[in-house]
Simulated scan of single mutants.
Amino acid sequence: MSMTVEREAIARRLIKGSVKRSYAPVVDLDWDSPPKPDHYFLPPTVLSLVGTDIWAGLSEEQRIEVSRQELANILSVGIWFENLLNRTLLARLMTADPAAASTHYALTEMGDECRHMVMFGRAIEWSGARPFRMRLDERLGMALLPYALRGSLLWVAALVGEEIFDALQREMLDHPQLQPLVSRLMQVHVAEEARHIGFARDGIMRRKPTRSRWETFVASNGHAVAGVLFRRLFTNPAMYRRAGLDGRAAARAARANPHFHEVQIRGFASLASFLEEAGLMSRASRYGWRRGGFLP
């Protein structure tokens, strides 16, 4: 069976899976139920300041507020990346076979991502927080990236934007201190992202035997800056300021926090192993992810 035929077969299977198990977050989540005052918006086990002197000096109410702002920040980042993926896939479809199952699954995945962006936006509103906006340089980068993401690099970028979040969500969605609506949001996202991750991983491994040296070079080095970028996004000073803290001091504390580094390493572990297996983790990429705190 040829690579194209196998890829189409996988796309058809994923489409069937989407028909059997997809969600409509607007009606599948209980948006009318207010946040519980004694529950966290992200579990303390993954919050960036846990274990620092700053965290030790906070009241329980302040800690919950930090979790609210960290949730709003991470959901805002998720919206940016899902928007980027959709625009990249849509650009590729201009030259794709409109009758191919892989095209139909790409459209199905885009539909999932659109619903996820609505779900994330509604969750920010429901939490009582406000979304975080991209800086000008970030907006320019997001506008240009769809033109640069091709071949294996596209699927690597998709995994970088999906797997780290997915791994951490699986770890915390059943936490007893987590807001029930946030737990449900994570259940929905994990179920649908599993298909997206499988499709991206398959795309990378099927290209491995035939990709050129140039494609391998670009794909293995193109994500070198992602670790440093994610560290900055995950420790956004603005979210600490909104929680009533000194934003710069809190960001410095979070970035130097061994506990938070452990969280980052756990989130990246599965993807790091896969990229090594696929031959797409270069020396530069390892350095970038280690510099960002995602590799030991």
Rank of each mutant, 00 (worst) to 15 (best):
P98S: 12
S48E: 12
W55S: 07
P37L: 00
L42S: 00
L89G: 10
Y23I: 02
D32I: 01
M110V: 13
Q62V: 09
L84A: 10
W80H: 13
L93T: 13
F41L: 14
A129F: 01
L47D: 08
P98V: 08
A56N: 15
V26W: 11
R68H: 04
Y40S: 00
A129Q: 08
E61N: 05
P35Y: 02
V26P: 00
E65N: 14
V118K: 12
N86D: 13
R92G: 05
N83G: 11
V66E: 06
D112K: 02
A100E: 09
A72D: 13
A91S: 07
L71S: 03
D53E: 15
E125S: 11
I54R: 14
P43T: 14
L71P: 10
M119E: 03
L93C: 07
M117W: 01
L93N: 13
V26D: 04
P25M: 01
E61R: 13
R63K: 15
R115C: 00
K36R: 13
Q62T: 05
V46E: 08
A96N: 13
A96L: 10
D112E: 15
T103C: 13
V50H: 06
G111F: 03
S76A: 11
P44H: 04
F120N: 06
P34T: 09
T52Q: 09
L89N: 11
L42A: 09
R122M: 14
L93K: 08
S48R: 08
R21C: 08
A100Y: 11
M117N: 15
S67P: 12
T95C: 00
E82F: 06
F41D: 12
S76W: 03
F120C: 11
R122C: 08
I64R: 15
G121T: 07
I124C: 09
A106Y: 07
R21K: 14
W80F: 14
M94A: 15
S33Y: 01
P25A: 07
P25H: 03
P98M: 07
T108V: 13
